[in-house]
Design a protein around this nucleic acid. Sequence first.
DNA 1: AGAAATTAAATCGCGTCACAAAAAAATAGA
DNA 2: TCTATTTTTTTGTGACGCGATTTAATTTCT
Lengths: 413, 413
Amino acid sequence: MKTADPELMRAINRFHVLDTIRRFGSISRVEIGERTQLSATTISAITGSLIDDGLITPLHVGDLRSGGNRGRPRVMLTLNPKAALVVGAKIAANRMSFAVTNFQGDVLAGLTLPMRVDRLPVQVIADLVEDGVRRCVLDAGVAMDEIKTVALSLPGIVEHGTGRVRSSSIFRDTDVPLKEAIKKRLGIDTIVESDANAITMAQHWFGQARELDDFVLVAIEENIGLGVMHGGQLFRGARELSLTLGDMVMGASPDGAAKLATLASETAILNGDYDDARLRDAIRLGQGMRQVRGMIDSGHVELQAAARRAGAALGIAIANLVALFAPPRVILVGSSLALGDHLLAPLHDSFAKAIPEQLKTVAQIIIDDVDDELWARGAAAVALGELYGSPWGTTGPARSHTHTQNQNVVVED
Amino acid sequence: MKTADPELMRAINRFHVLDTIRRFGSISRVEIGERTQLSATTISAITGSLIDDGLITPLHVGDLRSGGNRGRPRVMLTLNPKAALVVGAKIAANRMSFAVTNFQGDVLAGLTLPMRVDRLPVQVIADLVEDGVRRCVLDAGVAMDEIKTVALSLPGIVEHGTGRVRSSSIFRDTDVPLKEAIKKRLGIDTIVESDANAITMAQHWFGQARELDDFVLVAIEENIGLGVMHGGQLFRGARELSLTLGDMVMGASPDGAAKLATLASETAILNGDYDDARLRDAIRLGQGMRQVRGMIDSGHVELQAAARRAGAALGIAIANLVALFAPPRVILVGSSLALGDHLLAPLHDSFAKAIPEQLKTVAQIIIDDVDDELWARGAAAVALGELYGSPWGTTGPARSHTHTQNQNVVVED
DNA sequence: AGAAATTAAATCGCGTCACAAAAAAATAGA
DNA sequence: TCTATTTTTTTGTGACGCGATTTAATTTCT
């Protein structure tokens, strides 16, 4: 039970201000006041402290006066890109992606390594992750000790707090203490998050849900991931467990029942149909679904039926989600979207049939074909989100800026 | 976006204190401090203000000194029962229940009226509710204007904020502005809530989940209701919509798919099997499931199969819920529990088969056979919860209690 | 019985917070 | 240069939570 004290109050308002600056990229104090409803005084104090801490920078524009604009000009504030660097990583069965981003979430260096890692021993995977992170950081031209946090995302059920992976298609073992393993190797704060939550965060910060504080995301890949944004925060289960949709059982009785994952995951669609050499290669490269789409287009009936089945099941599962969370938007991402209408037409169709009448207008379904980098960037956003929430610089007392204020770095164009 | 200010801070802490007193019934200031982690100073200030506002009362015990207890004795604090009176009501298809409770949630008067109200015109139902409330208040020996709030609970999807009933088996119409209708009739603040949420609140306050801030409740009656308690608060969908489980589609494709409600609701189990006169009567009296149980016991094969189907479907639906919310406890309530093991055995069975391995130990399923009064009391708890959260007396400045107490209570519109 | 010890609750003083009002800063137009 | 205008900072006020201190109410010891 969190007690409220002045420090918490400040932390909340500070976060609101920082978040507002992040959302608008470049914004004056007055506008922050309009958006947050905080008084100008408070804004000044908080932004002052943020400037002192080096998290934001004042930006005296000089021009951009759109004429007829008298009075003291507004000083724009932006995130200080150099305030922190983080690494985000996505670990998938057939590839790893890394992204080094600055405090604004801009990608300084990206790296995707196609390789089949699933079912390798944990130690080996951890080694590979370490290599990838170090390599990507090197590419970005920075030193490892400048990295504040590393965030890893992977499919499966992840316990956010402890950084343990309860279960994942990547690992043979269950309950893998991945966070500790990586932290020991890199000597950097590490966060482990489900890939679905990472991409959900990415959509919230950079993608199709920038303006929404409530939405649901379904990631259709080797597994079916789920991310729920609720009130601007990732919704986690009661034990800080990440959510998953692949375990949803579709059926009314144990006999006929099947998990969604066995109906709609990539593996399910392929159903062991690896006799085609090109398809085998494509799968190894993570292009399996694209290849399948081609095969369906040229008349592969069985695969088409599999895609239809998958789409139908997904449509129902999504309808169930809408019935539970009533989100204004559902975003679909993941490699299986490469199947195009072979998957989506039955999906929409069964969604329409499954959704209750009075919820029909509630949710809007959006398809977003995202690239590897955004997944990794999402993981980075998870890391940044934590830095925002609990700034390492003291949340503490407002200092009198009177004698520190002149570092107001005048940057002109 | 709520900004944090001293007033909010105080409101939060005040709520924590009040909630702690409610949970423990009778508790001293020191113990409140231990539980809330607030300083003794703050506790003193807040309890002082609560006493001034008449919400709690100091209780000088005198005895109960369990020996060996030196020093100044603790003064116990309790909720002031007379601080507010509320009415809770449960509207079901075949009966209405009412309960007048004091500020502690003690029932001063209860009333259950067996009558078939579903599909009656809204106006008629509203009239019946009005009569029931007035009658029950009269039974409690108090005047209507002493009632602070009325809370109605009913099956279906309810929009909490506006008090509109999006859809309910009770009403023929959709989007019924029930809150307005009742408020106009009674002239009292009215809250409309789903019955599942009300009984969830009741379990949290008085029942099987008193110590839990996270749990899920499934109400199996004419419909399948769902309540989710998350972090000590009722979890509502993004639009403040109440949740429902009856709309969950069980099946992998639109053809074979069926909503849970058509598999596991009372109507579904009966499946139009009204040829038995005694059963017809029992249903009218809300004893349908009890009667069905007897019929199964004496060898009614079809009904037994129906119960088995229902249980199996419910087990799967609950497993899906556990996969989504990871609650430590799932509580089952509702009239269908009268079916006993005819329903529960297949339920547990299919739950065990459907739940993923790593979540097996997460949730504990509890059956609770609750009576009508608890449902109504739950609605009352919903009303009380709102009173707690935003106390009508000014949350305002701490007064020096020594000489002030008489000013406040200026409540303006 | 009276003093000492002990525990609970109230009070005091401090630092912090948000905010309103006033002052200062920075610019455009006259 | 001077005035009007708009933004930002400074100043002053009321409220908050908390640690230290004081007062209150008992029990235990002598």
